[in-house]
Every structure is written in C-alpha cells, then in structure tokens.
Design a protein around this nucleic acid. Structure first.
Ligand SMILES: NC(=O)c1ccc[n+]([C@@H]2O[C@H](COP(=O)([O-])OP(=O)(O)OC[C@H]3O[C@@H](n4cnc5c(N)ncnc54)[C@H](O)[C@@H]3O)[C@@H](O)[C@H]2O)c1
Ligand SMILES: NC(=O)c1ccc[n+]([C@@H]2O[C@H](COP(=O)([O-])OP(=O)(O)OC[C@H]3O[C@@H](n4cnc5c(N)ncnc54)[C@H](O)[C@@H]3O)[C@@H](O)[C@H]2O)c1
Lengths: 230, 230
DNA sequence: CGCGATTTGTGCACGTCTTCACAAGCGCCT
DNA sequence: AGGCGCTTGTGAAGACGTGCACAAATCGCG
C-alpha cells in the first residue's frame, strides 16, 4: 500500500516522543487517514496489534520497514545535477529514511567533478562502471524532459528496475521496471482547479453557470489531504 | 480529474510538433492512460471531439486550461528559501505552465534580501502586507517539517486556500483549504517496496516464503505509470 | 476470579473508478 | 450520392477502495 510510508513516518514521530504503543485511532490521526482503513492496511501485514491496547510502536516500525524493503539501505543514483538535482543531492532526508545517494551523474562537462556533500559528480558515461561496482536499486532522473527518456534507457540498461522521474514527460520502460513521477506543475494545476471550483461555487450559490465550471457529479482528485469547503 | 494536467502537457507537446488534431488513442498514448478512460474524462468537459477525426488540439487545450482555472495566471507564494526552495524559485517550469511566483519568504534574516530570479526574499512577517497587495492563490511550503504547520496557519490567516506542502508532515487546516503534499522519501519508499517485492518473487518461484514478503492479493500502489514484471 | 472498558479485526454494503464493447456519427473516396 | 473506414461517446459489468458497525479479544482492577 502507498500509505505504509506515511504510517512509518508517523510512527517514527511517535517513537521519538516516547510512545511505546499507539491505538489505531491515534496513528490514523497522526497519518491523516481513517482508523478503519489503517487497521485494514495493517492487518494485511499480518496483524500485530493487541486488542484493548493498540500496536507496539517499535514492532510496527520494524514490520513496515521490512515490508517496504528498508532493512537494507538502498543505493540511489541521481542523474542530472542542475537546479533541482543540487537540492536533492544536498537533502539529508534521504539518509534518515533508508536511502543512500550512491552517485551523481550529469552530461555537462562543466558539472562533472563538482563536489556535493562528499560526492563527486560523474559523467553519465561512467554509469555502467559504477553500476557494476555497486548495485544501484533506484535511479532518480532530474534532467530536462528532452533527456529523460534517454537517461531512463541508460538506467534500465545497467539493470535499474525502479525510477523516480522529475521530468515532465512519460517514460516508456520495459515490463518489470517501475517508474514513479513527480511533477510540480501538475500539483499546482490540481490546486488551481480546486481554486477555480471554489471560486465559481461561491460566485454562483446554486443553479449552474457555465457548463464547464459547474461540472456534474464533482470531479474527484485522488490522494492528498483534502478539505473542500461547503 | 487529476489526469487533466497530464493531458494538457501531452497536448502542448502535440501542438508544438504541429498536430492539429489527435485521436483519443493517440492522446491516451502520449499521456500514458487507457483511451476509453481518456474519452470518458474528456466527455465530462462537454464533449469536443469529432467522430471519425478526433479532437482539435488547440480547442482541447483551451478547454482544459479553462477548467483548470489557468485562464488567469495564478500567483504563488513560496515560503522557505532553503535547499529546495532555491530550486523551486529558479524553476522556469512554473511560468510556462500558468503560474507566477509572486513572492519568496523566509524566517532566516540571513536569507532575507537575497535576490533570486529578480525576486527578493522577504521576511515571513511581510506576508500579510504582500497578501493584501496582490491576491495569492497558492502557497508553497518548503520549510523544515517543524515549521510547516505554523507557516500553513500563517498562509491560511492571510486567505490562502490552496497549499502545496513539501515538508514531511501532515498539516491540519480548516475546511475549505486544500492541501497537497509532495514527499520525496515516500516516493522512494514505494519504489523500494516494489523492489523488495520483485526480489522476493524471483527468489521464490512459487510457494510463499515469509508471510510478509508474499502478501496475499498483491498490494496495489496507486498512481504513476507501473509495469510490474512477471 | 470476573467484569467492564477499550481496542482490534473484519463482514458487509456502498460508491467510485476502470475497462470492454459496440452503436452512432463523421468524413472521405469513388 | 452512397458506402466504407475510422473514431467518438456511453451502457454495462466488474474490480476496487472506503467506511460503518459490531463481535471477539485483551487488559486492568476490584
Ligand atoms: N527546478 C525545479 O524546481 C523543478 C521542479 C519540478 C520539476 N523540475 C524538472 O526537473 C528537471 C530538472 O530541472 P532543473 O531545474 O534542475 O534543470 P537544470 O537545467 O537546472 O538541470 C538539468 C541538468 O541535467 C543535465 N543533463 C542534461 N542532459 C543530460 C543527460 N542526457 N544526462 C545527464 N544529465 C543531463 C544538465 O547538464 C543539467 O545539469 C526538469 O525536467 C524540470 O522540468 C524541476
Ligand atoms: N532538499 C530537498 O531536496 C528536499 C526534498 C524533499 C523534501 N524536502 C523537504 O523540504 C523542506 C525544505 O528542505 P530544504 O532542504 O530546503 O531545507 P533547508 O533547511 O535548506 O531550508 C529550509 C528553509 O526554511 C526556512 N524556514 C525555517 N522556518 C521558517 C519559517 N517558520 N518561516 C519561513 N521560513 C522558514 C529556513 O530559514 C530555511 O531557509 C524540508 O521539510 C524537507 O524535508 C526537501
């Protein structure tokens, strides 16, 4: 489930504040989900709660980390050390959440050799050599969209089967390779959409205005906390 | 629908490459979705295709931009000009997709006054004044998690009703305020989960090993292109 | 030792999303 | 003008996710 990481973060917070156990209600609150949903999710892991008490925080953390495959610190290769790549390379949130940035790559000779957080930027052509030395579990693409597909191909070629793509484009990859995309502009546009809806709703108390603003049935936007007003 | 922005991006690509019309199949391909799904989504906007021909690219772009509320260039306020904030502030993908970064804020006096892309970083206390001068549609939070809730409250206080949160924490906001979250580590953990699953599947051809790795029914992870192997 | 308070695990029903499949509509070519 | 191929729009079926509500289980306390 995609909610497991969220639970994990909430659990770590709870552990730091000294909680030994937590009820489904409490954890659900901290993670921003329904308690029934959380219990159902957790029961999929093999049921590790005690009725009348709740869940053992430490045990649950171990459980989830195991299921997520975080027992081994996975190596991440970052390709494209530009504007965004720099921020990612300098981010300490990776290390604390089970990942290790193993290598930085770029195609620009100007960038190659630059040092960020004790890591030297390598030329993208070095990718096969580095991949041979240490097993790269995940590739992160932070290049312009035009180069993303090519980089993806290169990553796949050296055996990477999980890709996180920041470039605004769809990647085509062979079966067995998993790619997730993060697109800033899309997030903003979804917010804009809600803004537009909220605006037209308040402007027109009831009866629909344009057939476009007053969409039938209310368009649902998945994920994220939401709190559309009255 | 959350897929509209994806369609929009694909349509812009098509427009740039000279296409005047596009079939649902073609657009669905470019956006990485099922063609029936795409047609159903588009029919919600009021049906603008011609049978036997397809959709008019330009018209469809206008349609979607209108529904997403992109006819007006929305003002974005970015709070937290650190590692990530710098990258966001310097990103030109905002402007080209219907947004305008209107102001940068930070609490650190060291940062205040710094200039990024013709924009001067202001102290967070200036937020009410700036918000009064120009209507801020969306607030982006790129501060540490510890400060995120406080910043969210400040944004809400000046009338911001849409928030994009990069800090790894859940925000509580009043009804009517919409918040979306982007969490890097969660994306990586989901990929790690799939890696773990793939690894244990290949290791154990059939009969289940640990009750934890071989989860019943296959856990689904929503969103993103996926291509889980055999 | 038993009882009540508390919390988990889950059956069930409901609404939503997805996909297939096909009739209806449109344009082009003859 | 008519037919043919292509494409849209949508009905229906199925899969899926969600949330309620409650029985079963456990602990603490008298
Ligand atoms: N900057 C942001 O805040 C931001 C936000 C969201 C999405 N993005 C997306 O992330 C991507 C990168 O953005 P950016 O602002 O860092 O751009 P950038 O131009 O600053 O950086 C791109 C880097 O990729 C390198 N590169 C180009 N082709 C390459 C190749 N074939 N192999 C390896 N490296 C290559 C370039 O040398 C450059 O260093 C873009 O697709 C952008 O749309 C950026
Ligand atoms: N750097 C990344 O690549 C990255 C990736 C994903 C998520 N994040 C998250 O984004 C957030 C920012 O990351 P970062 O690396 O830029 O951190 P950072 O420490 O470099 O920057 C944080 C900035 O926020 C400012 N700030 C702190 N409190 C503030 C307040 N109350 N009001 C206004 N500004 C305030 C600080 O002065 C600092 O400039 C963090 O929550 C981090 O977990 C970062």
């Amino acid at each position: 489930m995609a909610r497991l990481p969220e639970y994990l973060r909430a659990l770590h917070n709870l552990a730091e504040t000294g909680h030994e156990t937590v009820s489904s209600e409490g954890l659900a609150n901290a993670a921003g989900v329904n308690s029934a949903k959380l219990r159902k999710d957790l029961s999929q892991l093999g049921s590790y709660g005690t009725r009348g008490v709740g869940y053992d925080v430490g045990l649950l953390i171990d459980q989830i980390e195991y299921v997520l495959g975080l027992t081994q610190r996975r190596a991440v290769a970052l390709v494209g050390v530009g504007n965004l790549g720099h921020a990612l390379a300098g981010y300490d949130g990776f290390a604390s959440r089970g990942f290790r940035i193993a290598a930085l790559f770029d195609a620009d000779q100007e960038r190659v050799g630059e040092e960020i957080n004790d890591l030297v930027v390598l030329h993208i052509d070095e990718l096969p050599r580095v991949a041979a030395e240490e097993s790269i579990a995940i590739g992160v693409i932070a290049t312009p969209a035009a180069a993303a597909q090519r980089v993806a191909d290169q990553l796949v070629a050296v055996g990477v089967t999980s890709i996180l793509n920041f470039a605004p484009c769809v990647l085509s990859v062979p079966d067995g390779v998993d790619v997730r995309k993060v697109d800033l502009a899309i997030e903003l546009q979804i917010l804009s959409f809600h803004e537009h809806r909220k605006a037209s709703l308040t402007a027109l108390p009831a009866a629909g205005g344009s057939a476009l603003t007053a969409l039938p049935g209310g368009l649902a936007v998945t994920e994220s906390q939401e709190a559309i007003g009255t």
